[in-house]
Design a protein around this nucleic acid. Structure first.
Lengths: 249, 249
DNA sequence: GCAGTTATCTGATGCAGATCATGGAAACAA
DNA sequence: TTGTTTCCATGATCTGCATCAGATAACTGC
């Protein structure tokens, strides 16, 4: 007789539609991306960004929109997704503060080929792509760092291709949960809580399966005592066991 | 009573293990990548590369090898592939002269996470990653171009994820054939011949299916009069019909 | 031209996971 | 509290494609 439990994920509801100028500076200077620049340089860069607040679920941009901006998450979480012809979405990534998205390539792309959406109330720093290019011109080290980030993302995307072409759903879900736990996990009474609203739908979009199948797998994991889960939340009870699933043949 | 036909793909068997210094300069200066640099600058860059010849099927590097080099295809074709846990390969890309591969990110990766293999006798220009970084430092425009290339590749990888998660094999194959035809096609008596040895195995690795299924789909396409194909070769008879398959719902 | 090898074709069978369908439980609003 | 909405669980069924297995055609070397 198992019953679902109340969500332990507390959504911060402070109004983040504005992040103070002060906050901005702190955020920018703390980004690994800008970490090697002088305070003065960061200040200069700071001035070229504007900030925009987004509500939960609000669209930041959509596939096909003219790709002329680059975004940096200052506060909140941002979903990057693509859409299949059949109308289903594929969730490519969930970005945390400090990560950038949008258009870095000024030459190539003229339209976004993915969509971005605030997964929680968020404050986003925005800059025009060409203005960002100027920054890269002034600080060539940054271009190299950006290259590294892109290389890492390319690798992630390739890993996902491998997953889709050779792993059963259970393993894909295990890998995804592990990744989320490491990235967004918070310890909460003897379990590692994934501290973001996470529905079966989200999970199925991340692993390219259906909500029904995701639900079945989650049920199994729960009976096996590996996770604890309810409506829009997941906690890891036995990370070791989860890693075994993610790793095993 | 259909029978397979002799391969119309003529493999160039001139010995390309060496590409002359002269050829190197011509290749480098013709790369879109270096196109905006002065001849003198290209000469300087040229001197920092060494060249290596590879035979058909020879490994250039393998997953896990220390990632310390960047490669540019001068002549021939190079396969980029990853390996699944079950031993099957996934073919990520086939690179033509002018495209680079290997490690651009000097900071992040310490080991290659894919493998590269000569798909035809090839001449490859090689440079140490850190030396390449120096070139990027000296010519910041190049870093921006590299960023564009990476962004394009990331997008391609994401497209592939979409394909795997939502399209049936037939459509994936149609898309792949179209891409190959555009990239490597050569007109030959009323058909557009894909001018590279292309087996059912290759095709299945590109579309993440099995050789058997690829073979079945190819048979269908052939009976439908859309393609003509035999042992290790494919020609497109009806590009329009192929595009329809690739596009259709 | 012949033998051996490698690539391709095609049938038969099985299964992971999609799809369809229904009931129940958390959250939310009034 | 009570209704309403959204999310989740779980059974029943169906199917695209993998897997296994064997036959045949194209290439290679001698």
């Amino acid at each position: 007789m198992k019953s679902r439990r109340k969500s332990p994920v507390n959504l911060v509801t402070t109004d983040p539609h504005q992040c103070s100028i002060d906050l901005r500076m702190r955020i920018l200077s703390r980004l690994p991306f800008f970490s090697e620049l002088s305070r003065k340089a960061v200040e200069g860069i700071n001035q070229r960004f504007i900030e925009v607040g987004y509500e939960l679920g609000e669209r930041i941009y959509t596939v096909g929109d003219p790709a002329e901006k680059l975004y940096v998450v200052a506060e909140g979480k941002v979903k990057i997704l693509q859409h299949t012809a059949s109308g289903r979405d594929v969730l490519l990534d969930i970005l945390s503060p400090g990560e950038f998205f949008g258009n870095i390539a000024a030459l190539g792309a003229t339209a976004y080929n993915d969509s971005a959406e605030a997964q929680s109330p968020s404050c986003i720093l925005v800059i025009r792509s060409d203005a960002f290019r100027e920054i890269l011109d002034e600080h060539p080290e940054l271009a190299l760092k950006a290259l590294d980030v892109m290389a890492a993302r390319l690798n992630e995307a390739n890993q996902r291709v491998i997953q889709l072409s050779s792993m059963p759903v259970e393993k894909r879900i295990a890998i995804t949960l592990r990744k989320l736990a490491l990235k967004l996990g918070r310890q909460k009474d003897s379990m590692l809580l994934i501290d973001v609203p996470l529905s079966r739908d989200d999970l199925s979009e991340m692993t390219s399966t259906t909500p029904e199948t995701a639900s079945r797998v989650m049920s199994q994991l729960q009976s096996a005592g590996i996770i604890e889960s309810g409506r829009q939340w997941v906690g890891i009870l036995d990370l070791k066991a989860l890693e075994n699933l993610a790793e095993k043949d």
